[in-house]
């Protein structure tokens, strides 16, 4: 793989409230190479957004962020000065969110908001600034950009607003774009347009993308590598094809078996029983153990780290599970042969 752009080592985030502490991210390691797309999958509360908010430095004062390393292109994001951080975050690392209205100011025209980014990050002024603003909108394929720059966010449709936000965020020409559920609020036909746009922009600029999503379908079609998060940890990480071909963690396997498919018949969905654990207590056991059909004694005693589960040597495939893939797969096949199970009472 090529040069590493972002390296996160043993990241922890905890939120401290008046009478409770929530350990939202509990030791996360990952890397993103230049030009690469990393997909981060997980359900609500898995810590996928909080991890990236920590990278961006967007968490509030009640969040305690610690890490062994948070390196971006040779800069240590934990120790650099505030002004250096501002130059990195926002300019070289940009982030887009699910709801574009949280990032767009409803009182300012799109042109004003994009021009602000261009002025700050690229030092443009006057006529050059105006031209670059219109170009930025044209680049995200917004029709008639010279008219659109004068309009306010409410005059844009949902898909156009997302395009406008992308235009604003990439105007500073970032090396890394963090996209947090960028298409979740959009209809599928518009989602397809936005993902295609991101793909094109990435190709043109060799930009790295971290795509946060709950949708396994979006990851399958978009990311080169995937990290699956559960209860504040990465529980499986691998190249996208290897993960879908041979998911190694029971949680990933459960997720894939629980989604109805458009491309084939599924007799009965295999729901994962139960719900994720409470993260206000410190966990010693595997966080998935209470929902796992394959748990053994060790799972209750010791939380597994990411173990090598690669089927072929030289490939990256790690899972935080004590059991080997073939054991889990065999047990699963045996369980499927028995009667389809109804979810137990909770």
């Amino acid at each position: 793989m090529s040069e590493t752009l972002l390296r996160v080592k043993n990241l922890h985030v905890r939120f401290e409230g008046q009478d409770a502490v929530v350990h939202a991210v509990r030791g996360v390691d990952f890397e993103v190479a230049r030009g690469e797309t990393l997909g981060i999958v997980g359900e609500s509360g898995s810590g996928k957004s909080v991890t990236q908010m920590a990278v961006m430095g967007l968490l509030g004062p009640n969040a305690v962020v610690t890490a062994e390393g948070l390196d971006f292109d040779g800069h240590d994001l934990l120790t650099t000065s505030a002004s250096a951080q501002r130059r990195l975050r926002g300019r070289r690392i940009a982030m887009i969110f699910q709801d574009p209205m949280t990032s767009l100011n409803p009182f300012l025209t799109l042109g004003t908001q994009i021009a602000e980014v261009l002025r700050l990050h690229r030092g443009l002024r006057g006529r050059a600034l105006r031209r670059a603003t219109i170009e930025a909108l044209a680049e995200v394929q917004i029709p008639r950009p010279e008219l659109r720059v004068e309009q306010y966010p409410h005059e844009f449709s949902g898909g156009m607003r997302q395009r406008a936000m992308i235009a604003m965020m990439i105007a500073g020409r970032p090396d890394l774009l963090i996209a947090d559920e960028p298409t979740t609020a959009l209809d599928v036909t518009v989602q397809a347009q936005i993902l295609e746009l991101l793909r094109e922009l990435q190709r043109e600029r060799s930009m790295s993308i971290i795509l946060i999503t709950h949708d396994l379908g979006v990851v399958a079609g978009f990311a080169e590598r995937v990290a699956v998060m559960y209860a504040g940890r990465i529980v499986e990480a691998s190249a996208t094809e290897a993960l879908f071909d041979a998911p190694a963690h029971p949680y990933t396997r459960g997720l894939l078996a629980s989604i109805p498919r458009l491309d084939r018949d599924v007799e009965s969905l295999r729901a994962i029983p139960g719900a994720p654990p409470d993260l206000s207590a410190l966990l010693r056991e595997c966080p998935f153990r209470p929902r796992c059909a394959f748990a053994v004694k060790r799972c209750a005693e010791e939380e597994p780290g990411l173990l090598d589960r690669a089927l072929r040597p030289g490939t990256e495939h790690r899972a935080a599970c004590w059991r080997e893939v073939h054991e889990v797969a065999a047990l699963e096949a045996a369980a499927a042969a028995a009667a389809p199970r109804e979810e137990p009472l909770r």
Binding site: Q193, G221, F244, D263
Partner: peptide, 26 residues
């Protein structure tokens, strides 16, 4: 046809082979 082709399929090989009918506009 466009709607069905836009649905992401959780299978990287199929996703790559998927022929998308991209609609323009809203």
């Amino acid at each position: 046809r466009a709607l069905l082709s836009a649905v992401p399929i959780p299978d990287p090989r199929q996703a790559r082979a998927q022929r998308r009918v991209l609609l323009s506009g809203d």
